[in-house]
């Protein structure tokens, strides 16, 4: 992630939502950009799962709906109760919810080949693999 390059255009958001849900809805994205415009923080900050070494979201999930497969976090929708404990545990605020989606939105790296990286006009996103 090269935060200083991000322009908050949201191309990543729409790319993600279309790839995963086939709908034109940036709020169903697993990557989101927060815009800050103040003397304390003057930055556009992309928020997306950075895959913690020992993911606290997995540990926080009371129903075992989340599993770390070594590369990304897998979500088992059947087990998820939408308690949002995972989002509370996430150190980067990179887990999102949408009223129509019955599970947390956590980046799955497009199963290893993230589309948003290819579509960022600013070169602010980079995927180095594992």
């Amino acid at each position: 992630m090269h935060t200083e390059k991000c322009a908050a255009c949201g191309v990543c958001e729409l790319t993600c939502a279309l790839r995963h849900f086939k709908v034109n809805n940036p709020k169903k994205s697993m990557i989101r950009v927060e815009v800050h415009f103040s003397s304390e923080v003057l930055a556009n900050i992309p928020k997306v799962c950075g895959v913690c070494p020992d993911p606290p979201c997995v540990k926080a999930c009371p129903t075992g709906a989340l599993r770390f497969n070594g590369r990304w976090i897998e979500v088992n929708e059947d087990k998820c109760t939408l308690c949002k404990m995972c989002a509370e545990a996430c150190p980067n605020g990179s887990i999102f919810f949408h009223p129509e989606v019955k599970r947390p939105l956590i980046c799955d790296l497009c199963l290893g080949d993230p589309e948003c990286v290819k579509m960022c006009p600013m070169g602010a996103l980079e995927y180095r693999g594992h």
Binding site: A7, C9, L42, P121
Partner: peptide
């Protein structure tokens, strides 16, 4: 200091600027 694009822009042209020195230093 950076760019700010409108939604879904492929050529984000908005410039974020901040004065570095002098009497207007810090204005962004």
């Amino acid at each position: 200091v950076g760019n700010h694009g409108c939604f879904c822009c492929a050529m984000p042209c908005g410039q974020i600027t901040k004065v570095r020195r002098g009497r207007f230093a810090g204005v962004f």
